[in-house]
Amino acid sequence: MKNFKSINTIKLLAVLFMSSIAFVSCSSDDDDHDDHDHEEELITTVLYTLTSPTGFVTIEFQDLDGAGGADGTYDVSGPLSANTTYTGVIKLLNETEDPAEDITLEVEEEGDEHEFFYTPSISDITITKEDADVDGNPIGIETTFTTGEAGTGTLTIELIHEPTKPNDGTSASAGGSTDVEVTFSIEVQ
């Protein structure tokens, strides 16, 4: 009788085990649909457009498969003109979505938690941020880009999340964490 009881207990445990597997198998059926997550917050593209009365220059970085995989591409449409004032607008895109998602809108919405920084290696280029967040501090989506004498060098564009605002205009003084950092070769002629 006692043996019978313990056999029953063992049976009960076995039934529990089986039923839980069945339970999980069933619920895993529900998961069989493709629950693959797209990289929703992925930034694939940085597009900086500089417009002057006489023409425009685009500066673009594109990495469609994100970190890893194929390397990103850098594309500057042409040389900048010396002693010229350009109106600059930056756009961040996620081009894995269709249509491409404009991430700049999110940055603008949370302007007080973000700031773009532009660092040229050519010393007589000046870049002024023309927009402001709710606290009156610059965001850097809209800029005025003024060139001086001819020369070649680099331009680094950064987007900092949670920077110290206001700051002295350099990304080093802003702290925060870096969401975007791309460097382009540019030429002024």
Partner: peptide, 23 residues
């Protein structure tokens, strides 16, 4: 001992899961 384990990378995170679904 017999053991069955199932990992579900719950969807909706907006990023590729660090650890995939596995059994």
């Amino acid at each position: 001992l017999v053991r069955y384990q199932q990992n579900d990378a719950v969807s909706g995170t907006g990023v590729s899961p660090l650890i995939p679904d596995f059994e």
